[in-house]
Design a protein around this nucleic acid. Sequence first.
DNA 1: GGTTATTGATTGATCAGTCAATAAAAAATA
DNA 2: TATTTTTTATTGACTGATCAATCAATAACC
Lengths: 197, 197
Amino acid sequence: MPKIGMEPVRRRALIDAAISAVGERGTLNVTVSEIASRAGVSSALAHHYFGPKEELLFATMRQLLADLGSDCVAALKKAATPRQRVSAIISVNFNTGQFREETVHAWLAFYVEAQNSPHLRRLLRVYARRLHSNLASALADLVDRAEAARVAEAIAAMIDGLYIRRALRDGLPNPASATALVEDYVDAKLSRQVTRL
Amino acid sequence: MPKIGMEPVRRRALIDAAISAVGERGTLNVTVSEIASRAGVSSALAHHYFGPKEELLFATMRQLLADLGSDCVAALKKAATPRQRVSAIISVNFNTGQFREETVHAWLAFYVEAQNSPHLRRLLRVYARRLHSNLASALADLVDRAEAARVAEAIAAMIDGLYIRRALRDGLPNPASATALVEDYVDAKLSRQVTRL
DNA sequence: GGTTATTGATTGATCAGTCAATAAAAAATA
DNA sequence: TATTTTTTATTGACTGATCAATCAATAACC
């Protein structure tokens, strides 16, 4: 059976399995066996490729971040104006795969685990900073720099908060209304400022 | 040694110990022994009073909610105008014991656990609904009803989001700036509306 | 013959939950 | 009042389950 070159295939399968297992259960308290069996392999193989369980979870988090990152890059590429760039970032968070129930639960689980694990914490901070800087740089063209930083923080908080509420109430804030809520905030803020473009 | 009438004392001590254990570790994955020893008793006693671990955690969550609730009632009592009532609610979330690092971590942990436990989910939903209705009723005097509901949702999301970010970055959004951010949003929204009061 | 893929079986640790035993307070009974 | 009985408080020791991690063994590849 051993076909060679299996390593990348298995790694990816295990990570995908981990995402779906964590997402479905809503917690990082999933067993290695559970993940492995979803990926169609034994738990021993999971350890063979990833070593300790933590390592597999780190890889999973990195994958989640990478997915969001590439969605974000793609969305920004299509945006022509600064205001559109802001909308693109908001939209990515609510309208791509990110806002699926499963993914939302996984994100939340990782957020909590980051409290314990400096490594996970660092990964999440990278995401938070990138989100913030993307927003702030788009906003910097629309309002003054200090205000841009503040608005970016508020938008980011609203996005995170809507994720939590999405996870809690069963699917209540749907993508469209979540997007509308954040956009409305942006409009409210921008309408009081002199736009530079 | 057995002094009678210990039950309420021990229950309270165990709940307090649970809050601080969960808060410090940032996860509900604390052992009954850990909680019990913080409370100065054996794990067997914890089981004696609360039965299964879950029950102790439910009681802990209920305590957290009750604390927030009474802080909220107290703050609302001092508010004279609708606008002040909105501010009071915002301020409670950021300026009382609620925004301490420990408490924030505990909240987050409970949020995640609620994904698995319908019972916890119900408890949290009560909190979310109360927050929303408090906000919406205050806002209903300032903007039209539909808009009030939307703004309330946005404020609630921002509050939750700032909690997450507070938990993630080490203490970055301090109470004052968190409050300012939300207040600024409220002002931005209200300034575009005809106030009725 | 060395490398890669794969697993079943095993080990060791951790924990939730139980239980029998101890002791003091309170209640019942003599 | 003196005694026995019941109730309440408390724990150490134990049990059973769960799981992460290891390892030796098997087999295909090159």
